[in-house]
């Protein structure tokens, strides 16, 4: 997965972003002011920079022109359109306003990385190998046939691994917003995935919340 630089002067928020991105498999490096961010970015070792707009020493906007086209997501506390526009005009790929939800953060990061780095091609855990590009799943080298929605569900769980997804969220992500079936559809598909792949211990039910693929 990607190497991400987090520049944010608030330790609480810096940690929060780091923890969440590490959950879905990214490697994070933390800095707490603008100058350190600029130095770290200079190494060119990062796939993505997450920059707070208001930081000591140098603001996120001030750093921006020195970055030579590295992918950037701004984090801003200001909801004003002007601030967002300014960030995007400076060449940022996206922005997140505080307060943000974990899934939103993960989604934005994934989207930017997909544009800049390409799709994740495959994902493996235990004896399972998932080829995301040609939609095939192997268990111990043997291909397991999955129905389209079952594969979609597995893919969504992989992208948001280690995060509990509610049934409503899963319906939204896998079946589309306007799907009118009930949330039992999700349960049925989860059951099938567990049975076919033998991942009951990985695909966990989270109390009062939903399901989580813990890897």
């Amino acid at each position: 997965m990607a190497k991400i630089l987090i520049a944010e002067d608030e330790p609480a928020i810096n940690d929060l972003i780091k923890w969440n991105l590490e959950l879905v498999g990214h490697t994070c490096h933390q800095v707490f002011d603008g100058r350190a961010a600029l130095e770290a970015a200079g190494t060119g070792a990062f796939d993505l920079l997450i920059l707070d707009v208001m930081m000591p020493a140098l603001s996120g906007f001030e750093i921006m022109p020195h970055l030579k086209g590295q992918p950037v997501i701004f984090v801003t506390a200001k909801a004003g359109v002007q601030d967002r526009l300014r960030g995007l005009q400076l060449g940022a790929d996206d922005y997140i306003t505080k307060p943000f939800e974990i899934l939103e953060l993960v989604e934005r990061v994934k989207a930017v990385l997909r544009r800049t780095k390409g799709e994740m091609k495959e994902f493996s855990f235990d004896d399972i190998r998932v080829e995301l590009t040609n939609r095939r799943v192997y268990k111990g080298g043997v291909e397991i046939p999955l129905k389209p929605k079952e594969f979609d569900l597995l893919e969504t769980l992989i992208h948001n691994r280690n995060l509990a997804l509610s049934r409503e969220k899963l319906i939204e992500l896998v079946w589309n917003f306007d799907y009118e079936g009930d949330s039992r559809t999700v349960d049925v598909h989860v059951q099938r995935l567990r049975r076919k792949l033998g991942i009951a211990h990985r695909l966990q039910t989270v109390y009062k919340t939903g399901y989580r693929l813990q890897v």
């Binding site: 609480a12 928020i13 929060l16 969440n20 506390a77 505080k98 974990i102």
Partner: peptide
């Protein structure tokens, strides 16, 4: 800022 942390 505190809201983001608390919620997050």
């Amino acid at each position: 800022t505190p809201l983001t942390s608390i919620y997050g």
